[in-house]
């Protein structure tokens, strides 16, 4: 039991950190432009593919750096040559634009790497047990994921709070036209933030790619969860996104690990349950089976009880 709890917690933290790296970029972009970037999860997928491809050419470690940088460039291009023009036509146009872009990226990925999953395996360099606890081993690549996520987030936080560029970004988030009137290149700042957000998504893709299947539907696999986090955490709140990411990461990992059903609970409480009990089929569904629905249950719950999320300032 203790073993299960410890490992679920560790895995949950790894998954939560990964989710946060993905949502932090989305949140930054949202608070700046007021628009949800539907192509964000596609950039995540692109990160996974690029790290696989670059990894084949030059090895894993350089790919770890190059793939996110390439994703950052893609993000900068999306902002500079796409969104900046679409922005003038309002939010609906922006959403449609990013939505279309997600399809475009998916098709491109399919054209280049095919419809099936590529063999994006855990690189040999980090494929060994990091430590053994209660007889189970914790793989090194998960440790690497943790180190990368945490150091990236500390770096991001320091850059935002301690540098002049960070000040300008914060200023442009609250009053963009004032920041412009003070002589700051706000469109340039927007492009930079878009690049950073996309780079983070790419990095998350690199380290998430070998945990999930690197295939053209990868964006669909993480996209909806990312939006759940943004809503549960509160639109535009980085701290809220962090709380929600960890919560969903840990909840879902625990749910997957729980091999019990309502039947077990009722039996433990002294009820007699047999196959002939009404709705036995429903009661006997194991928690692990419904684990993927946990984020969406949370989403529904929040939309009903607290539509602004943990730390959001406005309702969804």
């Amino acid at each position: 039991m203790l073993e299960l709890a410890t490992f679920s917690l560790l895995n949950g933290i790894v998954y939560g950190l990964l989710l946060f790296m993905l949502t932090s970029g989305l949140t930054l972009i949202f608070s700046m432009m007021g628009v949800l970037n539907f192509a964000h999860a596609s950039v995540f997928m692109l990160g996974a593919y690029l790290s696989y491809q670059v990894g084949l050419w030059v090895g894993f470690w350089p790919a770890l750096v190059i793939a996110p940088l390439l994703c950052g460039l893609v993000g900068a291009g999306i902002e500079r040559y796409g969104l900046r023009y679409v922005h003038k036509s309002g939010h609906v146009a922006e959403i449609l634009f990013t939505f279309g872009l997600s399809y475009l990226i998916e098709e491109l990925v399919t054209m280049i790497w095919g419809r099936n999953a590529v063999a994006n395996n855990v690189p040999a360099a980090v494929d060994f047990p990091l430590f053994t606890l209660f007889g189970s081993t914790f793989p090194a690549y998960k440790g690497l994921m943790m180190v990368i996520s945490v150091s990236m987030l500390v770096f991001l936080w320091l850059a935002l709070k301690r540098t002049r560029m960070g000040l300008v970004i914060q200023a442009a988030l609250s009053h963009p036209s004032m920041a412009s009137a003070l002589g700051h290149d706000v469109p340039g700042v927007f492009m930079l933030v878009f690049a950073i957000g996309s780079g983070l998504a790419g990095l998350a893709g690199v380290i998430g790619g070998f945990m999930l299947l690197t295939q053209p539907t990868l964006a669909h696999a993480v996209g909806p969860i990312v939006f759940v986090i943004v809503v549960v955490g509160g639109l535009g709140s980085l701290a809220g996104a962090f709380i929600a990411s960890m919560l969903i990461g840990i909840l879902q990992t625990f749910a997957v690990a729980i091999d019990y059903s309502l039947v077990d609970l009722l039996r433990a409480l002294g009820f007699v349950i047999t196959r002939s009990t009404p709705s036995y089929e429903f009661l006997s569904i194991k928690v692990a089976t419904v684990a993927p629905t946990v984020p969406y249950l949370l989403l529904v719950l929040f939309l009903i009880v607290r539509p602004r999320g943990f730390l959001g300032k406005r309702d969804v």
Binding site: L167, V168, Q170, A171, H175, M178, A179, L182, H184
Partner: peptide, 15 residues
């Protein structure tokens, strides 16, 4: 249009 989350000093620095 004071930047609300930034301090007075940071607001001035942004000028």
């Amino acid at each position: 249009d004071i930047f609300p989350t930034l301090t007075v000093r940071e607001n001035l620095a942004l000028g």
